[in-house]
């Protein structure tokens, strides 16, 4: 009985914590536009996450992209060139200009919400 009670208490705490995480615990970000959402969808469909990280999450063959747009050494233009042509390891996906625009717009959105990267002085 005692064991079931402990389980029940943990489970209820989990449900409560989850609901908080789903709402107030994560409400700092701005809401993305539908164009940015399209970019996100393309990011998933081409599985960019297999080589790139956002917020440190993703595969490691390619560079971290969270702040690629605001990074002084990289920036939007550089990102566009990579997306349009590929590079040594990065494949050329033959993306249409519309797809590239949506991806860039999505990366801008991610960058704008990367508060932790900026306050930590990185």
């Amino acid at each position: 009985m005692q064991k079931l009670l402990i389980f029940a208490i943990l489970f209820i705490t989990y449900i409560t914590y989850s609901s908080w995480v789903y709402t107030r615990g994560t409400d700092r970000a701005s809401i993305m536009s539908s164009h940015q959402e399209l970019g996100k969808q393309i990011y998933q469909e081409y599985n960019c996450q297999s080589c790139h990280q956002l917020f440190g999450l993703g595969g490691y063959l390619g560079p971290e992209l969270t702040t690629v747009i605001s990074d002084k050494n990289r920036g939007e233009l550089y990102a566009r060139i990579l997306l349009e042509n590929g590079a040594i390891r990065m494949p050329n996906f033959h993306l249409s200009p519309k797809q590239v625009n949506a991806l860039i717009d999505y990366l801008k959105y991610v960058d704008a919400n990367a508060f932790t990267y900026k306050t930590d002085g990185k």
């Binding site: 989850s18 789903y22 409400d27 970000a29 809401i31 993305m32 996100k40 959105y109």
Partner: peptide
């Protein structure tokens, strides 16, 4: 099931929520 919550706009449209819930 939780890993599919991103299909809902409430999660998908907010990058912080989306990534947090994905890793949760």
């Amino acid at each position: 099931c939780e890993a599919q919550l991103w299909l809902l706009p409430h999660f998908n449209n907010n990058i912080i929520r989306d990534i947090t819930v994905q890793w949760k």
